[in-house]
Nucleic acid binder design. Structure first.
Length: 668
RNA sequence: GCCGGAGUAGCUCAGUGGUAGAGCAUCUCAUUCGUAAUGAGAGGGUCGCGGGUUCGAAUCCCGCCUUCGGCUCCA
């Protein structure tokens, strides 16, 4: 996987940014709860103005689970202010102000904004409603301009709203943060205050209970409780240490994928974690994406040389980024475009060489493909690797296992003829489907990213694109799951198909992805010998059913809330003794479990059975075997399942047969 | 990277300028027990790191690191 966006799966924002103007028709579709929350944003603004009259408001839309308002004022909010603002909001709700809509002319709107009246409790001379002026300028001439007033608060607003502020009493402020004005970093920062609101007090309370539940299955928390992984400051941010329990889960997942890959005719390869800069200059990833890569590793003698020359940092950078005239000419000729401009060309003796921690695996796989002559009879060549890559994510973006700086992709690259693309894409899709089905992730949708016909940014010939897009569309259809086609969502080098999985809490994650690529084979000048005994250009397919082991495991921990099915569980069976009298029998049962290849432990501590069961439950061990004198006498085991409870007594042989079947079949 | 929280024992947390605390976990001893916590005792801390104020700093101030919630970015 490579040019594929990041490690592919990522959190999909559930709501569009507020600076994307909604049409009046879209606004009219606002649901009751959104209408309520939008009104709450106005009530919140009213409350803030009563306390800090200088506040200037920008946008205040409803969002998933609540609402916010962006504003600017001298006082910097902290959570300590919430109580005061909430109290004022409750007061406003009690005052039961009516929301009144009024249509005004553009001139009137501008006059109101210039006087500071819009988004204020009164006129504010010398403090014009600057953000509202911007908003007015954005409203098309054809659209009518309206404002809403509740009590003294008058705001530019298309609505709709609830009738009276008394509806807005079940409200709670949740967070304060900074946001960029119009989502643009250069336009300065606003304060953003988030809240949530519901029709009833009960629903509001239920919402916070749900949030608590979600916290309990947070993979970072469970990762610590179940000792699945560790992140250590001294190792570095965003670098996952897989502890023994987590390593079991990952290894089982990799075994699962590997089995499927063997069935589908893939070849496993291994490649190193670094590669020379030239490799990434050829692929086009360096220097264009160096912001999100670890800096180049320069050889010791070159470093000493440039230090000796008194080379500045900027000089060093340009000498690393540059290429020789010959190199530039080669790439430009292959691609038929000036992809490397004259500004990057430098005398060969001035060039600095170095290595890059690999940010993707494709160039290495491409070199394996190119390492020997290929015939059309060899195609498709499918190279797979659990390949570890490193990317420099911004520190604020790092999150547990789901956004990291070093991660392992369940990556593969398929090299095929154009005629084989459809078949291969379908194979990739069915693999992703198998993976998701096996893990019980049934709630997903498929997104087919197509090129935007108006745009010229796409590389390659239109007829190739047509064929590839048809192939993707047909493959998605064959899958038998709902899919959407999204023009403009293709990568510049080819169409792609993403799997967007909804987790138990309703969040959407982009996991598996399949992308068709015409560009890298050109840049690396790949070819195979065709039936006509002439060289032909292969097509590449990048794909990763999990995306990355790290993110997938993170999502999986939350998906199962830590209760892994037996085949994935780090500890599958725990033998619990009731008293020392059964130690010998327990040791025998334990030995049989180990001999059957199960991940089992024996707890013959001096604790009471209740405590042992409690500990096993907390460790989320799927099977507990309770052994007392009765079981020892009968030669059986009392089976307890962590979710199903007491399953009664079985013979050791029966239990072994049942659990080994369950594990082998990867049952949920 | 930006805004705002937070960082005290392995974990969860209390402690607002005057001798570092609790529960759980760990260890020791006793208990031999039937489906989510047996009892007693013990050990365990450069209070994130560095600097400053003070007779005295976990506590106040400054810088940094890490982490959380957002924003932004995302091949």
């Amino acid at each position: 996987m490579s040019q594929i966006r990041r490690d592919a799966p990522r959190f999909t924002p559930l709501f569009a940014m507020a600076n994307e103007r909604k049409t009046l028709e879209e606004r009219a579709l606002m649901s009751d709860i959104e209408r309520l929350r939008h009104s709450c944003a106005h009530v919140m603004a009213t409350a803030i103005l009563r306390i800090w009259p200088d506040a200037q408001f920008a946008y205040g839309p409803p969002v998933e689970n609540g609402f916010y308002y962006d504003f600017q004022m001298a006082h910097r909010l902290t959570p300590d202010d919430f109580e005061k603002i909430e109290a004022e909001m409750k007061k406003i709700a009690k005052e039961n102000q009516r929301f009144e809509r009024r249509v005004i002319s553009r001139e009137e709107a501008i006059a109101l904004a210039e006087s500071g009246r819009l988004g204020g409790l009164s006129e504010r001379p010398g403090n014009p409603s600057q953000f509202k002026l911007d908003l007015i300028a954005k409203i098309p001439e054809s659209e009518e301009i309206s404002c809403y007033q509740n009590g003294e608060f008058l705001d530019l607003c298309a609505g709709p709203h609830v009738g009276y502020t008394s509806k807005c009493k079940n409200v709670k402020l949740t967070a304060v943060s900074a946001s960029f004005y119009m989502g643009d970093e250069s336009k300065g920062q606003l304060q953003r205050l988030y809240g949530t609101a519901f029709e009833s007090k009960e629903e509001l309370e239920a919402h916070f209970v749900r949030l608590e539940e979600a916290k309990k299955r947070d993979h970072r928390r469970l990762g610590k409780e179940l000792k699945l992984f560790h992140i250590d400051e001294d190792v570095g941010q965003g670098l996952i240490l897989w502890t023994p329990n987590g390593a079991v889960v990952r290894q089982e997942l990799q075994n699962f994928i590997s089995e499927e890959l063997r069935k589908q005719g893939y070849h496993q390869v291994f490649t190193p974690h670094i590669g020379k800069l030239a490799l990434y200059k050829t692929s086009g990833h360096f220097p264009y994406y160096k912001e999100s890569q670890f800096p180049a590793i320069v050889e010791q003698d070159q470093l000493e040389q440039i230090a000796h020359e008194g080379c500045t940092c900027a000089e060093m950078t340009s000498r690393l980024d540059a290429v020789s005239a010959q190199f530039a000419a080669q790439i430009n000729e292959r691609t038929g475009a000036e992809v490397i401009g004259p500004d990057r060309v430098m005398d060969a003796e001035k060039l600095l060489d170095g290595f890059l921690l690999k940010p993707m695996n494709c160039p290495h796989h491409i070199k394996i493909f190119a390492s020997q002559p290929r015939s059309y009879r060899d195609l498709p060549v499918r190279l797979a690797e659990f390949g570890t890559v490193y990317r420099w994510e911004q520190s604020g973006e790092l999150n547990g296992m789901t956004r990291v700086r070093g991660f392992t992709q369940d990556d593969a690259h398929l090299f095929c003829t154009e005629d084989q693309v459809a078949q291969e894409v379908l194979g990739c899709l069915s693999l992703v489907k198998t993976v998701l089905t096996t893990l019980g992730m049934e709630d997903y949708r498929v997104r087919v990213g197509l090129r935007d016909p108006d745009s010229a940014k796409y590389a390659g010939r239109p007829e190739q694109w047509d064929r590839a897009e048809t192939a993707c569309r047909e493959a998605a259809k064959t899958l038998g799951v709902p899919f959407t086609e999204e023009p403009g969502e293709a990568a510049f080098y080819g169409p792609k198909i993403d799997f967007v999985v909804k987790d138990v809490i309703g969040r959407e994650w982009q996991l598996g992805t399949v992308q068709v690529d015409y560009q890298l084979p050109i840049r690396f000048d790949l070819s195979y010998n065709g039936p006509d005994n002439k060289p032909h250009r292969p097509v590449m397919i990048h794909r990763a059913p999990f995306g990355s082991m790290e993110r997938f495991c993170g999502v999986l921990i939350e998906h199962f809330a830590g209760h892994f099915p037996a085949w994935l569980a780090p500890e599958q069976v725990r033998v619990l003794t009731i008293s020392e009298k059964v130690d010998a029998f327990a040791a025998d049962v334990f030995a049989q479990l180990k001999a059957a290849g199960l991940r089992a432990t024996l707890n013959n501590d001096a604790d009471k059975i209740g405590a042992k069961i409690r500990n096993a439950q907390l460790d989320k061990v799927p099977y507990m075997l309770v052994l007392g004198e009765q079981e020892a006498a009968a030669g059986g085991v009392a089976v307890r399942h962590s979710k199903k409870g007491d399953l009664g007594v079985q013979s050791v042989a029966d239990f072994l047969a049942a659990i080994t079947d369950e594990v082998r079949e990867r049952r949920l």
